[in-house]
Design a protein around this nucleic acid. Sequence first.
DNA 1: TTGAAAGCGTTACCAA
DNA 2: TTGGTAACGCTTTCAA
Lengths: 334, 334
Amino acid sequence: MATIQDVARRAGVGVGTVSRVINNSPLVSDTTRARVQAVIDEIGYRPSTVARALSLGHSSIITVVAPFLTDPSVVLRLRGVASVVRESEYDLVLYDVEAPEQHAARLDDAIYGGRSAAVIVMSLAASGAIAQKRESSKVPLVWVDRRIDGVPCLTIDDHEGGRLAARHLLELGHRHIGFIGDRPDERFGFTSGDDRFAGFCEEIAASGLAVPGGYVRRVAHGMEDAATAMGELLALPDPPTAIFATSDLIAYGAIEAARARGVRVPGDLSVVGFDDIAMSAHIGLTTVRQPLFESGSRSAELALAMLAGDDVDTTAEWDLPLELVERSTTGPHR
Amino acid sequence: MATIQDVARRAGVGVGTVSRVINNSPLVSDTTRARVQAVIDEIGYRPSTVARALSLGHSSIITVVAPFLTDPSVVLRLRGVASVVRESEYDLVLYDVEAPEQHAARLDDAIYGGRSAAVIVMSLAASGAIAQKRESSKVPLVWVDRRIDGVPCLTIDDHEGGRLAARHLLELGHRHIGFIGDRPDERFGFTSGDDRFAGFCEEIAASGLAVPGGYVRRVAHGMEDAATAMGELLALPDPPTAIFATSDLIAYGAIEAARARGVRVPGDLSVVGFDDIAMSAHIGLTTVRQPLFESGSRSAELALAMLAGDDVDTTAEWDLPLELVERSTTGPHR
DNA sequence: TTGAAAGCGTTACCAA
DNA sequence: TTGGTAACGCTTTCAA
C-alpha cells in the first residue's frame, strides 16, 4: 500500500503538502495541487484512516450498540441510522450485544477505546461502566429507547401507547379485551412492556371496566410463544373479543393462532399490535405505530450534530410521536 | 483518556512492560504484572485500538459490504456473520451500499484504506476498482452470492433452485405454472433471478410442457409489485394454478393478491417462494430454502481463517445446499 | 506557498 | 525480565 511518503517523493513535494491536498486546504498552489493529485490518482493512493484517526485524536466511526438483528424493529431503526450516516463522512460500526453483561468490556472498548467518534445505544439499559465513565469521556453519546440521565435520549411514551391501543378497542365496542406482552427482560432491562400494560389498564379502567388477570399473558419470544398464549386465551370459557399485543410480532403470532382455530380476524377477534414494522402494512395489521426508522435517523443526526460541535442539550429527551394506524385486523364488536 | 505512558509512569515501569501485560506476554514477572494490572484497573486504562492498529499494521475490523437492511435475506446473512464475528477478537463494520457506483470510492477506502482486516462482500457484483486492485492487497476478501475469480465465494446453484421449485409443482400435478421474478437489477449486477428462471423452465420443458410468455412476470420491488403482477396473472382467461416466486417476499405479495380476490391458497393456487426467511416458517410458505444464516457465518469463518493465516483456497467456490421445504402454500392440483 | 519535524499511542526490537 | 527507542502514516505547527 502506498503511503503519503510515496506520494510526496514521486511528486517532489513534502508530506505536508500532500496532506494539504488530501484535505483540500487552500494553502496549496493550483499547480502543485494538480501535480500531487496526478500522482495520487496514478498510484491509487488511499490515506490510511487509522493513521489519520491517531493523528487527529478521533476516529471517523459512529458505533451503534444494539441487540441488533434479533428483532425487525431494531433493523428498521438501524436503517434510519444508516441512511443518515451514509451521507456523512463517518462509517457505521455495529456492536451487537446478546448478553450485555458478557460484553461489557468490549462495549467499553467501543466507547472509550478511542475507536468511536460517537456512540448510539439502542434498546439497552445503561451498563454500570458506561454510566460511570460517561462524564470523563468526550465521546458523544445518544441513547435510543431508554432514558439515561445526562445523555440525549430518543424515546416514546409507552404508557400513552398502551392507552391508544385500549381506546381504539374500546371505541369499537369491545368490552372483553386481553393482553399479550413481552416478558420483562432482565437482560436488557426493558420496562416498556410494563409501561404499555399500565397505560392500557388505565384507559380501560377509565371506562369503568377492568382487565381480568386471566386475560393477561406474558411471553418470552416472538410469534411462537404468542401463538401459544393466544390459544390459551381462546380456550377460556369466556374468551376475549379483542387483544392488545405489545409488538407486531406478538400480534402476528396471535392472529396465526386465532385463524388456525377458525376464529376470524377481525370478525371474531380484533388484534392491535405495536411498532408498525415493514411487514405490518402488508399484512394489514392495526397497530400503534412508533417512528422506528425516524428514531434511528434522528439519533444519527444528533450524534453528527454533537460531533460537529453544535450545542446539543444533553439533558434533552425527545419523545417521538405515537399514532394508531387502523388497518384490517380490528373491527367493531358484534 | 489515560495512555500507556500514564500507566507505565504510575507503575514505575517502561511502556514495553505495560504493553506486554496488556497482551499477556509470558515475558513479565508475576509481581510486575500484578503491579501494572493494578494500575490499569485503578485508572480504568483502555488501550487505544487505533494506535494499536497503526503499530500492528492491521486493524481489528471485519467489514461487510452489502445492500444491507433492504431485504430480510440480507439481514439473515448478517446475523450469520455477526454470530461468528462476535466470538472473535474482531469488530464488525457495516458498509451499506445503495448504489455501488456512487460509493466506489468509499468502498475502496474500506478495502484498501487500511481500515479493514478483512472484507466480506454480499450480493454485489465486483466493482471495477475492487477487481482490479484485489491482487495488490493483502486484505482477505470473501464474496457471498456471486462468483468472483480469485476470491473465495459462497454461492448457491440458482439454476438448480429453479428446477427444485418446478419439480415440486409438477409432482403436485400442476400443468399451468406461472413465474414471478425479480427484475434483473443492473445496479447490483444480479443474475440469480435469470438463473432460477432458466432452471425452472428447463425442468418444466423436461416434462414436455412449456411456460407461456403470458405466465411470466418481472417485478422491481418486493411485495407490492408482486401483488400487482399476481393480479394480472389471475385476470388471465386461463390463469395459472401454481406460481414460482423467486423470493419469499414476492411470494407473500402473490398470496396476498390471491386471497384478496378470493382465490384460496393452496386450494386454488399453489405458491412456492425462494429463500426461507424467518417469517416464512410462520406464514407456512412452501419455499426453496437457501442457507442464508449459514452463508453469513461461513463467510465470517472463512475470513477469520484467512486472517489466522490458514491456507484458504482462494479459487474455491462453495455451493451451499438448497432444499425444498414443503409447507402449506402448495397442494395438489385439482 | 512550502518543507521539516514533532507528535498521536501503540508494538516490537535491541540492549542491558 | 526489563527499559529505551524506532517505527507505523498521518496532521499540524513552525520556519523559511
